[in-house]
């Protein structure tokens, strides 16, 4: 009792609490994207034909590759956690690196995909966009906003994982105290989860 009065609660640590906190944060992220999916569903219901035509502009191949890339990275980060739990630090570090690499591949892909659109004069506020039909315009607005926000989350997730990587390396995350890795992984899965819904809704419209 006595020593607790001197050392402040800052050192206090509760793994279950921080995991619950992460899940609650994930809920807010889901609802953040949920608002966009709501807007998407309303406009798609209003302009189904336009959405189909506009979606043909996207390459299903690039979308599918990116889906596989993200799914794979999701597995590797889950494996990194398993490795940490089994006290295999080396493997965990490697798997985090693979995850980061995959994230980079995803972003590069995205860069080329967006770049091609920009090259054709398709970007928010462009002259071409102003000439489009309403449904097409809404589709591309949503496309840029949703994939843009998702890409932003990828970047945030990468930063988190980089922090986690160094913490594993210097030993502040170890096999008895790994909730930071666990939370980083949860965040990464969330990014994957959102893409699972974005992919069919953006690329596969008939």
């Amino acid at each position: 009792m006595m020593s607790e009065k001197v050392t402040h609660i800052e050192e206090h640590r509760d793994d279950a609490a921080s995991k619950l906190g992460m899940w609650l944060f994930i809920f807010t992220e889901l609802l953040l994207f949920g608002g966009l999916f709501l807007v998407y569903s309303i406009y798609r219901a209003q302009y189904p034909a336009n959405f189909h035509e506009a979606s043909l502009e996207l390459s299903v191949t690039i979308g599918a590759v990116n889906t596989i890339v993200l799914l794979f990275s999701s597995m590797t980060i889950a494996m990194a956690l398993t490795a940490m739990q089994k006290n295999n630090k080396k493997l965990a570090l490697r798997l985090i690196l693979v995850t980061l690499l995959m994230a980079l591949v995803f972003l590069v892909n995205k860069y080329f995909e967006w770049g091609a659109k920009f090259h054709h004069g398709l970007y928010p506020g462009s002259d071409l966009m102003a000439l489009l039909e309403r449904g097409h315009l809404l589709y591309f607005s949503l496309y840029f906003f949703m994939t843009g926000l998702h890409a932003f989350h990828i970047i945030v997730g990468m930063i988190l994982l980089i922090v986690v990587y160094f913490k594993v390396k210097n030993g502040s995350i170890h096999f008895e105290k790994y909730f930071l890795l666990e939370n980083g992984a949860l965040y990464w899965h969330l990014v994957d989860l959102i893409w699972i819904f974005l992919f069919p809704l953006m690329y596969l419209i008939t």
């Binding site: 599918a64 596989i68 799914l71 398993t82």
Partner: peptide
Amino acid sequence: MSNNSSHITEYKVLGRILLILMFFTFA
């Protein structure tokens, strides 16, 4: 710590899940 009681998912299981996910992507 509460972590000690938490479940460890085997690599094999994770790999299998990835295969299932890829299957559904192509589907």
